[in-house]
Computed example of a mutant assay.
Amino acid sequence: MPILVGTLTEPNPTPPSGIPQPADPGRPEAVWIAPDGTESQLTSDRELHFTLDSVTGWGAAPISLVADPHPRGGTRVRHIQPQPRTITWPLRIRATTHMELVAGWRDLATRFTQTRRLGPGLLRIMRPDGTAREILAYYQAGFAGEPGQGHTWDTAVLSLYCEDPYWRAVAPVSTLYSNGATVSYLDPYLTVSPSSVLGATTAVNAGDVEAWPAWTIVGPASQVQATNSTTGEAFTLSATLLAGETATISTDPPTVRGPAGQNWTGNLDWPSAVLWALQPGLNDVDFAVSGAAAGTQITLSYTPRYETA
């Protein structure tokens, strides 16, 4: 009996002409900026090390819920508290000789472990569209090596501790409010106009979560009241600033400094004063300045913060 033999056709990897090819999706790039300013590319093909495809912990910030039992059953959430995050970042280090591996391993370890002495470093993620976000992080663990490795290649599974779980923009945003004086349109100001006056205005927080601003006040002024009408929170600083003198107010951490750096925290209207945050999106704010004249200015600066990288 004859045997029927079919023809095996290999799949053609080249699609027919006329079918659009998928666009290159691009890939994120990552850099570690050590506390001493040294930068290490984590995703470059030109380095001894590269990132393995198993990064975790760079999504939404973790939270803790505090709930009370409810008489009718279940619970009621009383408080929601963002928690610090831990980012796991695996790196593969490979070399052509053992001593090249040792040198690269030691150098990279130093760039991370110096956070113990010098404070946090910065993990920065850059997207194909040119945008970037970063987060402050401390090295916690990871340079222990892996079993069966260590000759010409090894793996460091880094654990990076972030006390503030939110990512932030690379550069702060600043808005200048003036009392009729001509001001510069140059950076770093976001919206600057020589016709703007102190009073009711709108501040825009481009981030996903609250942003904690800072104010720089240039005299003359005798009292400054800052109100966020969106939240109903306000504070009043009662202190005399002569023409050209500067006071600074920070909300994170809460501090008030006079022209000579003196502590002016006691000049706020405690206990009702609230050094408020900017909510995501539009914020209706109002600056009422007593004793203002030509040259009086307030600069509001903040860094947008985000849930994810």
Rank of each mutant, 00 (worst) to 15 (best):
Ala200Leu: 15
Ala214Gly: 09
Glu245Cys: 03
Gly244Pro: 07
Gln140Asn: 06
Arg168Ser: 12
Phe287Glu: 02
Leu136Tyr: 08
Ile298Met: 01
Ser272Asp: 15
Arg116Leu: 15
Met99Tyr: 06
Val224His: 01
Thr251Met: 13
Gly244Ala: 13
Gly74Ala: 13
Tyr306Ile: 07
Thr7Met: 02
Leu160Arg: 04
Glu29Gln: 14
Val183Asp: 12
His151Arg: 14
Ala247Phe: 07
Ser196Trp: 09
Phe235Val: 08
Arg257Cys: 05
Trp215Tyr: 11
Ala23Glu: 10
Ala169Met: 07
Ala292Gln: 15
Val66His: 14
Trp32Val: 11
Ser272Gly: 07
Thr246Ser: 09
Val170Thr: 15
Pro16Ala: 13
Arg116Asn: 02
Arg305Phe: 04
Val173His: 03
Val204His: 12
Ala292Asp: 14
Phe143Ile: 08
Glu29Ser: 12
Gly207Phe: 06
Pro84Phe: 08
Ala109Phe: 10
Thr110Lys: 04
Pro15Gly: 03
Asp36Ile: 00
Tyr189Glu: 05
Leu268Glu: 02
Pro11Gly: 10
Tyr139Leu: 08
His70Tyr: 13
Leu268Pro: 00
Trp58Phe: 09
Glu10Asp: 15
Leu186Phe: 09
Leu101Thr: 03
Gly145Tyr: 06
Gln149Leu: 14
Ile80Gln: 09
Val285Gln: 04
Trp215Ala: 01
Pro280Thr: 08
Glu163Ile: 02
Asp286Gly: 05
Asp252Val: 12
Leu241Pro: 07
Trp89Ala: 03
Asp45Ala: 14
Pro28Phe: 06
Ala109Gln: 14
Ser193Val: 02
Gln262Arg: 06
Leu4Trp: 01
Thr248Arg: 14
Thr236Gly: 07
Trp32Asn: 04
Trp212Ile: 00
Leu91Cys: 13
Thr75Val: 15
Thr216Glu: 12
Asp154Arg: 00
Asn283Trp: 06
Leu198Arg: 05
Pro13Asn: 04
Arg94Gly: 07
Phe287Lys: 01
Ser290Gln: 14
Val289Thr: 11
Val285Cys: 11
Thr230Met: 07
Ser174Pro: 06
Pro20Ser: 10
Ile249His: 00
Gly261Cys: 10
Gln262Leu: 01
Asp68Cys: 03
Asp164Pro: 01
Ser290Pro: 01
Ile19Arg: 09
Cys162Leu: 02
Arg76Phe: 11
Pro15Arg: 06
Ala109Val: 05
Ile217Arg: 04
Leu198Ser: 11
Ala30Ile: 01
Pro304Asp: 02
Trp32Ala: 04
Ser159Gly: 15
Ser229Gln: 07
Gly199Asn: 12
His98Asn: 14
Trp167Asn: 03
Asn263Cys: 05
Gly59Arg: 04
Pro20Gly: 02
Leu241Val: 02
Thr14Phe: 01
Arg94Ala: 15
Ala171Asn: 14
Tyr177Gln: 08
Pro194Met: 02
Pro128Ser: 03
Ala61Thr: 11
Trp270His: 10
Pro35Ala: 09
Pro213Val: 12
